[in-house]
Amino acid sequence: MTRQFTEYHPASHYWPLQLVETGILPALAVFAAVRAPRGVGPDRERPRPAPGAARRDGHVQ
Protein backbone atom coordinates (compact mmCIF):
# COMPACT_ATOMS: atom_id res chain seq x y z
CA MET A 1 0.00 0.00 0.00
CA THR A 2 1.35 3.41 -0.90
CA ARG A 3 0.52 6.73 0.62
CA GLN A 4 0.53 10.02 -1.17
CA PHE A 5 1.62 13.26 0.40
CA THR A 6 0.62 16.55 -1.12
CA GLU A 7 2.02 19.87 -0.01
CA TYR A 8 0.13 23.04 -0.75
CA HIS A 9 1.54 26.52 -0.67
CA PRO A 10 -0.62 29.42 0.45
CA ALA A 11 -1.92 31.71 -2.29
CA SER A 12 0.32 34.51 -0.98
CA HIS A 13 3.38 32.49 -2.09
CA TYR A 14 2.34 32.26 -5.75
CA TRP A 15 3.86 35.48 -7.11
CA PRO A 16 7.09 35.35 -5.08
CA LEU A 17 7.67 31.79 -6.32
CA GLN A 18 6.93 32.86 -9.90
CA LEU A 19 9.42 35.74 -9.64
CA VAL A 20 12.14 33.46 -8.27
CA GLU A 21 11.59 30.98 -11.08
CA THR A 22 11.53 33.78 -13.64
CA GLY A 23 14.89 34.95 -12.32
CA ILE A 24 16.57 31.54 -12.18
CA LEU A 25 15.67 30.27 -15.66
CA PRO A 26 16.91 33.28 -17.66
CA ALA A 27 20.07 33.37 -15.54
CA LEU A 28 20.77 29.72 -16.42
CA ALA A 29 20.08 30.43 -20.09
CA VAL A 30 22.50 33.37 -20.13
CA PHE A 31 25.15 31.31 -18.34
CA ALA A 32 24.77 28.47 -20.87
CA ALA A 33 24.89 30.87 -23.83
CA VAL A 34 28.05 32.54 -22.55
CA ARG A 35 29.76 29.31 -21.53
CA ALA A 36 28.93 27.16 -24.58
CA PRO A 37 31.21 28.81 -27.20
CA ARG A 38 34.25 28.53 -24.93
CA GLY A 39 34.18 24.74 -24.92
CA VAL A 40 34.19 24.16 -28.69
CA GLY A 41 36.10 25.39 -31.68
CA PRO A 42 39.23 24.66 -33.64
CA ASP A 43 41.57 25.89 -30.89
CA ARG A 44 40.12 23.37 -28.46
CA GLU A 45 40.12 20.43 -30.86
CA ARG A 46 43.82 20.23 -31.69
CA PRO A 47 46.94 21.65 -30.05
CA ARG A 48 48.87 24.46 -31.68
CA PRO A 49 52.22 23.54 -33.27
CA ALA A 50 55.38 24.60 -31.48
CA PRO A 51 57.09 27.76 -32.74
CA GLY A 52 59.57 26.89 -35.50
CA ALA A 53 57.87 23.59 -36.28
CA ALA A 54 57.45 22.64 -39.93
CA ARG A 55 53.97 22.80 -41.42
CA ARG A 56 52.53 19.99 -43.51
CA ASP A 57 53.74 21.67 -46.69
CA GLY A 58 57.32 21.74 -45.36
CA HIS A 59 57.39 25.50 -44.73
CA VAL A 60 59.14 26.48 -41.50
CA GLN A 61 57.82 29.48 -39.63
Rank of each mutant, 00 (worst) to 15 (best):
P42M: 06
R48E: 15
P37E: 03
L19T: 11
V40D: 00
P10E: 07
A50S: 12
R35M: 09
P47K: 07
Q18V: 14
L19R: 14
P10V: 00
T22Y: 05
I24F: 11
A29W: 06
S12R: 03
G58S: 05
A53E: 15
D43M: 09
R44T: 07
V60I: 15
P47W: 04
A29G: 14
R46Q: 13
L28P: 01
L17M: 14
F31S: 13
P16H: 06
L25N: 06
G39A: 10
H59T: 15
D43Q: 12
G58T: 01
E45Y: 11
P47N: 04
P49I: 05
V34Q: 02
E45D: 14
A33N: 02
Y14G: 09
R46C: 01
R46F: 03
G52M: 12
P42W: 10
F31K: 11
A53S: 14
W15T: 14
A36E: 09
G41D: 05
I24T: 03
R46H: 10
L25M: 11
V30Q: 02
G58N: 04
P16Q: 10
D43F: 12
L25V: 12
P16V: 03
T22C: 07
P47G: 07
P49W: 08
R48N: 13
Y14R: 15
A33T: 07
F31L: 15
P49H: 09
V30W: 06
V40N: 03
G52A: 10
V34S: 05
A33S: 08
H59M: 08
V30P: 02
R55S: 13
G23N: 05
F31D: 03
V30F: 10
A29M: 13
S12I: 12
H59R: 14
P37A: 02
A32E: 04
H59V: 15
V60D: 06
A50V: 13
H13T: 02
L28I: 10
A54G: 02
P42G: 13
T22P: 00
D43P: 01
V34G: 01
G39C: 00
W15I: 15
L25A: 09
A54W: 04
S12P: 00
P37M: 03
V34R: 04
